[in-house]
């Protein structure tokens, strides 16, 4: 099932980074996110059961699994998006960079500033391309004037969008193509230099070319960030990620180096899923 033959050469995994023996979960850098016994509830319904894992810094970690298994829920815990909604709650321990983010004393606005998130559907704001990218920078007053311009440009370059939009920075962000909009959203998210980048099916609504461009973008970004991506596209997970976690019915079934998960999965359910027997 490892679809390596179909992967364009330039997208092949970079030389595997040294992995600490015995901790297949860790990828490139040191552990960035540590989750212990996480349970999540939508009202009375439990959507995540007893999840524990570590996610490495400066690596791309992918989560795969059938629809409704809790992938998005997991991401929404990591930046406390769920806190926007009543009746949703998380129990357990989630440490990001050592800080317990589920603690009531955490400033969620500040947390979300450090944990960037990109959604499945592109969500450009009703403002110019420039202002879209500057949004977070202005919000947290991290830059203005020439510095602001500089950082907007840098973010657009990193998101591989600069060349396409440099002559239309004053156009409405919503007038870009779907693929460009999504890269705009990535640029907007990385402009504030978050510690972690969460992406929930970022290419699900895009054509293959835009998808490739975004995957390239992620590859380039992974040297700077801790990237967590949810995808239904197994080939994408195999292509871009170093570590893959397979989730099933709210549980983390198996997690390890992508090369291992996609070739020699340990759990029967993982095997069934990646060979397309269910899901």
């Amino acid at each position: 099932m490892m679809p390596s033959s179909k992967i364009p050469k330039h997208l092949k995994l970079r030389p595997p980074v040294p992995v600490a023996q015995g901790t297949a979960e860790s990828g490139a850098g040191p552990a960035k996110i540590e989750i212990r016994s996480l349970n999540f509830y939508y009202g009375e319904v439990r959507a995540l059961s007893d999840i524990s894992m570590t996610i490495a810094d400066r690596a791309i970690t992918a989560f795969i699994g059938p629809s409704g298994c809790g992938k998005s829920t997991l991401l929404r815990v990591l930046n406390r998006m769920y806190a926007l909604y009543p009746h949703q709650r998380a129990e357990g321990e989630v440490r990001i960079g050592g800080e317990d983010i589920l603690s009531a004393t955490v400033d969620v606005a500040d947390l979300r500033y450090r944990i960037g998130m990109v959604f499945q559907r592109p969500t450009p704001f009703p403002m110019t391309v420039f202002e879209n990218v500057a949004f977070g920078l202005r919000l947290h007053a991290v830059a203005r004037g020439a510095e602001l311009h500089h950082r907007v440009e840098a973010a657009l370059r990193e998101a591989a969008l600069w060349d396409e939009v440099k002559d239309m920075l004053n156009k409405d962000g919503r007038s870009l193509s779907g693929g460009q909009q999504q890269r705009l959203c990535i640029a907007r998210t990385i402009a504030v230099n978050p510690d972690v980048l969460l992406l929930d099916e970022p290419t699900a609504a895009l054509d293959p070319i835009s998808t490739l461009r975004i995957e390239e973008t992620l590859q380039a970004l992974r040297e700077k960030f801790c990237i967590v991506i949810v995808t239904h596209n197994l080939q994408q997970a195999a292509r871009v990620s170093h570590v893959t976690g397979f989730m099933y019915m709210g549980e983390l079934v198996e997690m390890g180096l992508s090369s291992a998960i996609f070739t020699t999965p340990k759990d029967r359910r993982t095997d069934d899923y990646i060979t397309g027997r269910f899901g």
């Binding site: 500033y113 960037g116 947290h140």
Partner: peptide
């Protein structure tokens, strides 16, 4: 779209800021 509000919140905007800078426009 709800996604627009979520995206603004995900950047660390407080609800009033999202309202004024994103939702009203």
């Amino acid at each position: 779209p709800a996604g627009m509000k979520d995206a603004s919140a995900a950047l660390g905007a407080y609800p009033w800021r999202t309202l004024i800078s994103v939702i009203y426009p």
